[in-house]
């Protein structure tokens, strides 16, 4: 039953992804490798679309992945399943607010999650680079984007637009 699997996988994402929408990508990559519901190339398309539509990227990409896997009902199931764990946690935390934020175990847990999220992001960045995108043009564009960020961190949209325009020009004048 695909819907049960979807609920299970996206509930896990909602429960275990820390630090913003892009933190869900390693899990989505893992799903694509385990179940093959969508290819890695489709995943990059999904992330791209999720980033240029309004709304939180992590939720958009869940909606899209659910849609790809099991149609509109799949997208509803995936989206709700991903938010459910934090919905429960928000209600619990709202009640216990501040009581435990100074607790030593809670503080160490939060501190440990930082390097782990960092490693998760780097690993998925490397995995994405390893796919068919890996060529000299991709590397140049990536370096340019990263260099642009050194001077000052811009809006997400800024990188998307620059990269989209560059991509369109490269494909138009120099078919790969």
């Amino acid at each position: 039953m695909i819907y049960l699997l979807l609920i299970y996988e996206f509930f896990k994402i909602g429960l275990f992804s820390f630090g913003g929408g892009y933190a869900t990508i390693p899990f989505l990559y893992n799903i694509s490798e385990t179940y093959g519901w969508y290819s890695v190339k489709e995943l990059t398309h999904m992330i791209a679309i999720a980033s240029i539509t309004p709304g939180p990227v992590g939720i958009n990409v869940a909606t899209y992945a659910g849609l790809k896997t099991a149609g509109v009902l799949g997208s509803i199931v995936a989206t709700i399943a991903e938010i459910l764990p934090s919905f429960i946690l928000v209600i619990i935390v709202s009640k216990l607010l501040k009581k435990y934020s100074e607790n030593f175990c809670v503080k160490s847990l939060l501190e440990t999650l930082k390097p782990i999220s960092c490693a998760l992001l780097i690993s998925v960045g490397i995995e994405l680079l390893k796919t068919e995108l890996f060529n000299i043009k991709a590397l140049i564009l990536l370096s340019v984007l990263l260099l642009l960020s050194i001077k000052s961190k811009k809006d997400t949209i800024f990188y998307m637009v620059i990269a989209g325009v560059c991509g369109a020009l490269i494909y138009l004048f120099n078919p790969l």
Partner: peptide
């Protein structure tokens, strides 16, 4: 072809954004 190009480019931007978001955590810890 143009849409393919845009999707390709935005795909690269996504990789850059993932790296930057890792960098953000790195800087703030």
């Amino acid at each position: 072809r143009i849409v393919q190009g845009i999707m390709w480019g935005v795909g690269i931007a996504v990789i850059a954004l993932i790296m930057l978001s890792a960098g953000e955590i790195w800087k703030n810890s």
